[in-house]
């Protein structure tokens, strides 16, 4: 009996002792990396991250686990917890530009520059009407909206989201007023346009392409400086030439990608950057992006940080002006756009 007790205690003691010394510095990466996506499974950010991580894991030679940790406001719970983990490059966070509002919405007390983001890209924004709508061009729509302000119902995902901001910019740039109808996501917003519950829908190309090709909705134009050639449908023109004032704040890229704690060692960031760049040159990634209507931008490092600074200031102040923020952007010294 005593022998067994002795064995038992030594086992426990060694267990504790070993585990405390087991994380000495080694070459990065030697063990699996965890990427925590702060948006729900099956969504755009999730899909991009799963695909990208699968490619990057081949390059880095370790497995990359993708998990989802949703909740809070603008993904604050996931970001909070990943930020608290070791800044050793083994913990990534899957994000998009919509996450920058976590601070002003009261989700956490950090600026976004605690991250070093890697931007895969995004899908351009498109404005569409239901298939049998009387509006043939954006001009028709604007004229109708001017004739009867607030009579045209527009769906653009949830209040304060990226699509909603596009709608607000469109209204501002054209001097019109729309009735915004919020839905809990892009899919229900588009569905509402298909069923004719709303007149207009603004979401991204990736989300609308199948409905456009299936002739369930009809695009009026791209809310993007570039025209878009949709295979199986034809060219969709940019609306910027006819409404140059849209150029002022648009486009706001979706900037889907991932980020690593900014405190991570420089060598780790470089290793990730190299793998990220290599992954983006892979034909599989390019084909996937094309099939799913994403435009790869591939920023990282200083460039990406600046880009996210811009989003942070734009999103935060836009929401502040709507009166739906919990905190003033000034509190976090976020500059006005």
């Amino acid at each position: 009996m005593l022998k067994r007790i002795f064995l038992f205690t030594t086992l426990l003691a060694t267990l504790v002792a070993i585990s405390q010394t087991s994380h000495a510095a080694r070459k990065y990466p030697t063990r699996p990396i965890t990427n925590t996506v702060v948006w729900g499974a099956g969504g755009g950010t999730d899909a991009v991250n799963r695909m990208l991580m699968a490619e990057m894991s081949k390059i880095l030679g370790v497995r990359i686990n993708v998990t989802n940790k949703t909740g809070g406001v603008a993904g604050s719970i996931g970001m909070n917890q990943v930020l608290k983990k070791r800044a050793d490059g083994y913990n990534l966070v899957g994000i998009s530009s919509s996450n920058v509002t976590a601070a002003v919405n009261g989700g956490w007390r950090e600026r976004f520059n605690v991250w070093s983001p890697f931007i895969f890209g995004g899908s351009p924004e498109v404005i569409s009407v239901r298939a049998n709508s009387p509006y043939k061009t954006l001009d028709d729509l604007i004229k109708a909206a001017k004739a009867k302000p607030g009579s045209i119902k527009v769906s653009a995902s949830g209040a304060g989201g990226i699509h909603h901001l596009y709608l607000l910019e469109l209204a501002k740039a054209t001097g019109t007023k729309f009735q915004f109808i919020p839905y809990p996501g892009s899919a229900p917003s588009q569905n509402a346009a298909v069923t004719g519950e709303v007149d207009v829908v603004i979401t991204s190309m990736a989300e609308q392409a199948q409905l456009i090709k299936g002739k369930k909705i009809r695009p009026l134009g791209m809310l993007d400086p570039n025209d878009f050639n949709l295979k199986g449908y034809g060219e969709i023109k940019s609306t910027f030439p006819s409404y140059p004032s849209l150029n002022k704040n648009l486009p706001i890229p979706q900037a889907i990608g991932f980020a690593v704690n900014n405190k991570a060692p420089e060598a780790v960031k470089q290793k990730l950057a190299a793998a990220f760049e290599e992954a983006l040159t892979k034909p599989a990634v390019k084909k996937w992006a094309e099939d799913n209507f994403y435009v790869i931008t591939g920023e990282h490092g200083e460039e990406a940080r600046k880009e996210f600074d811009r989003f942070e200031s734009f999103f935060s102040w836009a929401l502040y002006d709507l009166g739906s923020t919990k905190e003033s952007p000034e509190k976090f010294s976020i500059a006005k756009p």
């Binding site: 267990l15 070993i18 585990s19 405390q20 087991s22 994380h23 063990r31 699996p32 983990k85």
Partner: peptide, 15 residues
């Protein structure tokens, strides 16, 4: 995540 037994298992499994 950085509990002793978890760290020990990770060390055993990965390293």
């Amino acid at each position: 995540e950085y509990g002793s037994v978890s760290l020990f298992l990770q060390w055993l499994w990965y390293d």
